[in-house]
């Protein structure tokens, strides 16, 4: 990861273009992830208009994939929204990490930047943050990165939605959605506390599955977090 990227001269336009350029190599991954989400939405039984609505309102692939089974099953509103909240909680941390660079900007601009926060835009921005010396230019860079991701995401989502309609159901492409979640989850297993939390969350979720509308899900997630924190503490405690 480049730490000492040289400071750049040039104004808003140069920063914006740099943002687009830095996003380009990652477009394929974002597009693939978006197509998968589009396919998963189409396969979930939602109508096309509903899928487009969900996609535009949420703009959060993981939360969309996580809530699709709940939406399809007609789970209680609170469970669906809380699940989305749990999956989106990482955005709070991203937001905390990004906010200091934009503190001097007006609220409306800060909110616009906040809306474009996602896993990939966050990583790209943090990597190049030091390149920009004032909040306004930095903001244009972030908007370049964020808008590129936004555009690729929504086009990919639509492609997935329409392509899925041409794909026979018995291919079980809904499985693609699960695989995407799995791919997001696997790297976190390198950390022992996270692994412990995951095992507990998984076990509880399976055990509590008979509860109506997967209402045990929230309990499983909370228990997983608690166990992960406890495992963290145990590791950090002096022996």
């Amino acid at each position: 990861m480049a730490v000492n990227t040289p400071a750049r001269a040039g104004g808003a336009r140069a920063a914006f273009h740099d943002g687009l350029a830095d996003m380009l190599p990652l477009s394929a991954a974002v597009a693939a992830w978006a197509v998968v989400t589009g396919v998963a939405m189409a396969q979930s039984g939602l109508a096309l208009s509903e899928s487009v609505g969900l996609s535009l309102l949420a703009y959060a692939g993981s939360a969309q994939l996580a809530t699709l089974p709940l939406l399809a099953a007609g789970a209680p509103l609170a469970v669906t929204v809380l699940t989305a909240l749990m999956v989106n909680l990482r955005f709070v941390i991203y937001s905390a990490a990004v906010a200091p660079g934009f503190r001097s900007l007006p609220l409306r601009q800060r909110l616009g930047i906040g809306y474009l926060i996602g896993d990939i835009s966050f990583v790209v921005y943090m990597r190049h943050e030091a390149r920009w010396h004032d909040a306004s230019t930095r903001a244009w860079y972030f908007v370049g990165v964020g808008l590129a991701m936004f555009a690729v995401w929504h086009v990919g989502s639509l492609v997935g939605l329409f392509a899925a309609a041409a794909i026979p159901r018995e291919w079980g492409l809904d499985f693609a959605g699960l695989l995407a979640l799995l791919a997001l989850w696997v790297p976190s297993l390198a950390s022992r506390p996270t692994l412990a939390g995951s095992v507990v969350a998984a076990a509880l979720s399976v055990a509590l599955d008979p509860l109506p509308f997967r209402s045990g899900l929230v309990v499983a997630i909370l228990a997983g977090i608690v166990v992960a924190v406890a495992s963290d503490r145990r590791r950090e405690a002096p022996r």
Binding site: S62, A66, L89, L182, W185, A202, S205, G224, I225, A228
Partner: peptide
Amino acid sequence: EHALKHAPAAALAAILAPAL
């Protein structure tokens, strides 16, 4: 902040396990 760091993995595990 440390606790929140574990939320996505726990949520994903809780969603994936019953499905798989």
